[in-house]
């Protein structure tokens, strides 16, 4: 899906846990997530703490969309 969106002319960032799959599939802007069943959350934390990390991942994703790339790039989240 990520490639078809890109092909349609819309920049897209892929938030996913298994980044090698995303690389193989061909996403260009990739942000690593927390875990497969909860990519943007962590049930071991409080809801508030979870939201802090979720905000960081989304912020990193927006920054990825604001960054010009000429090849597949993984944007690490700074926790």
């Amino acid at each position: 899906m990520v490639k078809e969106i890109e092909r349609a002319g819309i920049p897209v960032v892929h938030i996913c846990t298994v980044t090698p799959i995303s690389m193989t599939v061909g996403a260009n802007r990739i942000v690593p997530a927390i875990a497969i069943p909860h990519p943007l959350g962590n049930p071991a934390l409080s809801m508030e703490e979870e939201k802090v990390i979720r905000r960081k991942i989304v912020e990193t994703s927006l920054q990825a969309l604001e960054t010009e790339v000429d090849k597949q790039t993984i944007f690490e989240v700074k926790y």
């Binding site: 002319g9 819309i10 892929h14 997530a33």
Partner: peptide, 26 residues
Amino acid sequence: NSVAFAKEFSQKLVAAGVDAVVLTST
């Protein structure tokens, strides 16, 4: 299948003037 899905909804996104997409996977 997923290519067909995304092809279709991408056209809707373009038509709606969407500037960027955040795609999440589990």
